[in-house]
Computed example of a mutant assay.
Amino acid sequence: MDRMPTLIVGFSFTYYIEGYLYIMEIGVIMMKNIKIYEPAMCCDTGVCGPGVDQELLRMKSVNKVLEQHDDITIHRYNLTNSPESFMENELVTKLLQEEGPNVLPITLVDNLVMKKGDYPDNEEWEKITGIAFTTEKEKKDVNTGGKCC
Protein backbone atom coordinates (compact mmCIF):
# COMPACT_ATOMS: atom_id res chain seq x y z
CA MET A 1 0.00 0.00 0.00
CA ASP A 2 1.15 3.51 -0.72
CA ARG A 3 1.55 5.68 2.32
CA MET A 4 0.65 9.32 2.17
CA PRO A 5 3.88 11.32 2.37
CA THR A 6 4.57 13.02 5.65
CA LEU A 7 6.51 15.81 3.92
CA ILE A 8 3.80 18.08 2.56
CA VAL A 9 5.85 21.16 1.65
CA GLY A 10 9.51 21.16 0.78
CA PHE A 11 11.73 23.76 -0.80
CA SER A 12 15.21 25.14 -0.49
CA PHE A 13 16.82 28.56 -0.43
CA THR A 14 20.17 29.19 -2.04
CA TYR A 15 22.06 32.30 -1.01
CA TYR A 16 25.57 33.66 -0.74
CA ILE A 17 27.13 35.30 2.28
CA GLU A 18 30.64 36.66 1.90
CA GLY A 19 31.30 34.48 -1.12
CA TYR A 20 30.09 31.21 0.44
CA LEU A 21 27.16 29.29 -0.93
CA TYR A 22 24.50 28.29 1.61
CA ILE A 23 21.59 26.03 0.91
CA MET A 24 18.76 25.88 3.42
CA GLU A 25 16.19 23.16 2.99
CA ILE A 26 12.80 23.74 4.55
CA GLY A 27 10.06 21.22 5.00
CA VAL A 28 6.83 21.06 6.92
CA ILE A 29 6.13 17.70 8.49
CA MET A 30 2.52 16.65 8.74
CA MET A 31 1.59 14.58 11.74
CA LYS A 32 -1.45 12.33 11.63
CA ASN A 33 -3.80 13.07 14.49
CA ILE A 34 -6.14 10.15 15.19
CA LYS A 35 -9.02 10.36 17.65
CA ILE A 36 -11.39 7.51 18.42
CA TYR A 37 -14.65 8.28 20.22
CA GLU A 38 -15.98 5.10 21.80
CA PRO A 39 -19.30 4.13 23.39
CA ALA A 40 -19.71 4.01 27.16
CA MET A 41 -17.78 1.10 28.65
CA CYS A 42 -15.84 0.40 31.81
CA CYS A 43 -12.44 -0.04 30.11
CA ASP A 44 -10.75 0.02 26.72
CA THR A 45 -9.22 -3.46 26.84
CA GLY A 46 -12.30 -5.60 26.51
CA VAL A 47 -11.50 -7.70 29.56
CA CYS A 48 -13.72 -5.96 32.10
CA GLY A 49 -16.97 -7.84 31.45
CA PRO A 50 -17.97 -11.50 31.57
CA GLY A 51 -16.47 -12.11 28.12
CA VAL A 52 -13.44 -10.78 26.30
CA ASP A 53 -14.23 -8.41 23.42
CA GLN A 54 -11.74 -9.42 20.71
CA GLU A 55 -12.29 -6.19 18.79
CA LEU A 56 -11.32 -4.08 21.81
CA LEU A 57 -8.23 -6.22 22.34
CA ARG A 58 -7.29 -5.69 18.68
CA MET A 59 -7.79 -1.94 19.08
CA LYS A 60 -5.54 -1.94 22.15
CA SER A 61 -2.83 -3.61 20.02
CA VAL A 62 -3.33 -1.14 17.16
CA ASN A 63 -3.14 1.72 19.64
CA LYS A 64 0.13 0.37 21.06
CA VAL A 65 1.70 0.11 17.59
CA LEU A 66 0.60 3.60 16.55
CA GLU A 67 1.94 5.15 19.76
CA GLN A 68 5.43 4.00 18.71
CA HIS A 69 5.41 6.24 15.63
CA ASP A 70 6.57 9.83 16.04
CA ASP A 71 4.46 11.10 13.13
CA ILE A 72 1.18 9.78 14.61
CA THR A 73 -0.76 10.80 17.67
CA ILE A 74 -3.68 8.68 18.77
CA HIS A 75 -6.25 9.30 21.49
CA ARG A 76 -9.17 7.10 22.50
CA TYR A 77 -12.09 8.72 24.29
CA ASN A 78 -14.61 6.62 26.18
CA LEU A 79 -18.03 8.20 26.71
CA THR A 80 -18.03 7.03 30.34
CA ASN A 81 -14.61 8.43 31.25
CA SER A 82 -14.29 11.45 28.92
CA PRO A 83 -17.74 12.92 28.18
CA GLU A 84 -16.19 16.39 27.93
CA SER A 85 -14.11 15.26 24.91
CA PHE A 86 -17.33 14.37 23.10
CA MET A 87 -18.90 17.75 23.89
CA GLU A 88 -15.76 19.68 22.86
CA ASN A 89 -15.76 18.17 19.36
CA GLU A 90 -18.60 19.72 17.34
CA LEU A 91 -18.44 17.06 14.63
CA VAL A 92 -18.80 14.20 17.12
CA THR A 93 -21.60 16.01 18.94
CA LYS A 94 -23.43 16.59 15.65
CA LEU A 95 -23.07 12.94 14.59
CA LEU A 96 -24.38 11.75 17.96
CA GLN A 97 -27.37 14.10 17.74
CA GLU A 98 -28.20 13.12 14.15
CA GLU A 99 -27.47 9.38 14.22
CA GLY A 100 -27.68 8.41 17.88
CA PRO A 101 -25.30 6.27 19.96
CA ASN A 102 -25.03 3.55 17.27
CA VAL A 103 -22.72 5.92 15.38
CA LEU A 104 -20.01 5.08 17.95
CA PRO A 105 -17.18 4.34 17.68
CA ILE A 106 -16.17 7.27 15.49
CA THR A 107 -12.63 7.39 14.11
CA LEU A 108 -11.34 10.81 13.11
CA VAL A 109 -8.07 11.35 11.26
CA ASP A 110 -7.00 14.98 11.14
CA ASN A 111 -10.60 15.89 12.07
CA LEU A 112 -12.09 13.98 9.13
CA VAL A 113 -14.43 11.06 9.74
CA MET A 114 -12.66 7.92 8.55
CA LYS A 115 -15.14 5.44 10.00
CA LYS A 116 -18.21 5.42 12.18
CA GLY A 117 -20.26 2.66 13.78
CA ASP A 118 -17.29 0.30 13.94
CA TYR A 119 -13.53 0.35 14.36
CA PRO A 120 -11.32 0.41 11.25
CA ASP A 121 -10.13 -3.07 10.35
CA ASN A 122 -6.43 -3.83 9.87
CA GLU A 123 -6.57 -3.12 6.13
CA GLU A 124 -8.21 0.25 6.76
CA TRP A 125 -5.55 1.09 9.39
CA GLU A 126 -2.89 0.29 6.79
CA LYS A 127 -4.53 2.68 4.31
CA ILE A 128 -4.82 5.41 6.96
CA THR A 129 -1.30 5.09 8.39
CA GLY A 130 0.81 3.14 5.91
CA ILE A 131 1.61 0.65 8.69
CA ALA A 132 0.85 -3.03 8.15
CA PHE A 133 -1.22 -4.66 10.88
CA THR A 134 -1.48 -8.43 11.10
CA THR A 135 -3.52 -10.34 13.62
CA GLU A 136 -2.21 -13.48 15.29
CA LYS A 137 -4.70 -15.54 13.25
CA GLU A 138 -3.46 -13.96 10.00
CA LYS A 139 0.16 -14.70 11.01
CA LYS A 140 -0.80 -18.31 11.74
CA ASP A 141 -2.63 -18.62 8.40
CA VAL A 142 0.41 -17.26 6.55
CA ASN A 143 2.78 -19.59 8.39
CA THR A 144 0.63 -22.69 7.87
CA GLY A 145 -0.80 -21.85 4.47
CA GLY A 146 -4.24 -21.37 6.05
CA LYS A 147 -4.30 -24.95 7.38
CA CYS A 148 -4.80 -25.86 10.96
CA CYS A 149 -1.98 -27.42 12.99
Rank of each mutant, 00 (worst) to 15 (best):
M30I: 02
E126W: 11
I72E: 06
T14H: 11
Y22T: 03
K137I: 08
T73E: 06
L104T: 05
R3F: 00
Y15V: 02
N78A: 04
Y77I: 05
F13H: 00
C149N: 14
N33W: 05
N89C: 06
D44C: 09
T6H: 14
K116Q: 11
S85D: 04
I74Q: 00
I36H: 08
I23W: 01
M87E: 14
W125L: 12
I23F: 00
K115H: 07
E67K: 15
Y15Q: 01
E123N: 14
Y77W: 05
G19T: 08
N63K: 13
V92H: 07
D121H: 11
Y119L: 10
W125G: 03
K137M: 09
L56A: 02
M87W: 07
H69Y: 10
I131Y: 01
E25G: 12
N81S: 06
K60Y: 12
L56G: 03
L96P: 03
N33M: 05
N33H: 10
T107L: 04
T14F: 08
R58T: 09
D110C: 04
G46C: 12
T135V: 03
V47K: 11
P120R: 05
N143P: 06
G49T: 15
G146Q: 08
C149I: 14
D44V: 01
K64C: 01
L66H: 11
L112S: 12
E98I: 13
V47D: 10
S82V: 05
S82F: 04
Q97F: 12
E98H: 06
D2A: 14
T107M: 07
L112A: 13
A40T: 00
E98W: 08
K115I: 06
E98M: 13
D71Y: 14
T80W: 06
C48K: 05
S61G: 12
K64D: 01
N143V: 13
V113N: 02
I26A: 05
G49R: 15
K35Y: 06
F13I: 05
L7C: 13
D70E: 14
L104R: 09
V62P: 02
E84L: 07
D71V: 12
Y37R: 04
M1A: 12
G145H: 06
T80Y: 02
K139G: 03
V62R: 04
F86Y: 01
T107S: 04
M59S: 02
L96Q: 07
R58Q: 11
E84K: 09
K139Q: 13
Y22M: 02
R76G: 00
Y77H: 02
E18S: 09
E18A: 10
D118M: 13
I34T: 09
